[in-house]
Amino acid sequence: MAIVERLVDLILWPPLFYYIIFPGLIFVMIFEIFLIWSERKIAGRVQMRYGPLEIAPRLAGAPQLLADLIRYALQEVIIPRTVDKLPFVIAPIAAFVIALMPLIVTPFSPTFLPVTTEGSILIAAALTTIPPLLLILAGWASNNKFSLVGSARESFLIATYEIIILLVIASMSFLYGTLDFLKAVEVQQALLWGILLNPIAAITYFVAVMMGTSRFPFEIAEAESEIVMGAFTEYSGIMFGLAMGISYARMFVYNIIFVLLFLGGWSPLGGIVTGNYILDSIILPGASVAIKAVLISLLMVFTRAVYGRYRIDHALKGGWGFWFIMALVSIGLSAAVVYLMEVF
């Protein structure tokens, strides 16, 4: 039995557990399967059809993405002769890995986290800005006109949404007076959820994340009817599957940050004390964070059923002309809230 205990200990060793199981790779995979399945199911319901049904009809086609992944994995990965091979291969893989990196510093419970640092918000925000650069690299390395146009569009969009997201995160950390997620959640538990303290920041962040993870109506960088698949036009097989997963992984990470900054982190389930360490420190708080993140993600993917696609100049005009100003306003609102808190 000692071996089993050792194994359980090893699996529960925070760095390993955190990065491999929850909220790392395996959880993100399950999350993506669930999210893509429900995106297709919801869209199907709106569009008078069934959605995925062929694989396991009793589970309403839920393992469809697994089947797709197996197909992707078995397909030949074609690397065209004209591409710049090293960046072509590295870019999507690196982008996927780095897209998940912010999870190192995002806590899922007050006690269970691999890296404790004072500047966790700063690190997470910095890491989220890297994957889009790798997407641009992928488009450039593909040596394809559609990829190039897709990269150019992506680079225009980055400049817009990254600034908005960073400004909003700055406004919230200004409000909480900290750069640490743990303290930010503590402030929210003591006071109010961030979405009530600064609703403008929450809405702005929500829209900017939709822009950043190319959800409709901002699915501009990979607009199918215009530029085929944007930066990923030349990819095939598992590389394509990976490239498709990047935007969902990024959306997941952004929404974890959203939950921690605006939706009170692990409250309400995190406050329950049962005496069991695993239940108290991992499952209950982790579940409350994850469920909130999933709900926000579902809201984001639902827009596919309602909206078309903006033109890039409309999106940029909206980004700089309206949401950028809203981000500045949210800083002002934060300042006002901080002032009011000090007065009362």
């Binding site: 869209a43 569009q47 008078m48 009817s225």
Partner: peptide
Amino acid sequence: FAILLGHSTMYMWFFG
């Protein structure tokens, strides 16, 4: 036309 504009719902509705 709808699917060219990225509006998949209307595509399905029109065809349905």
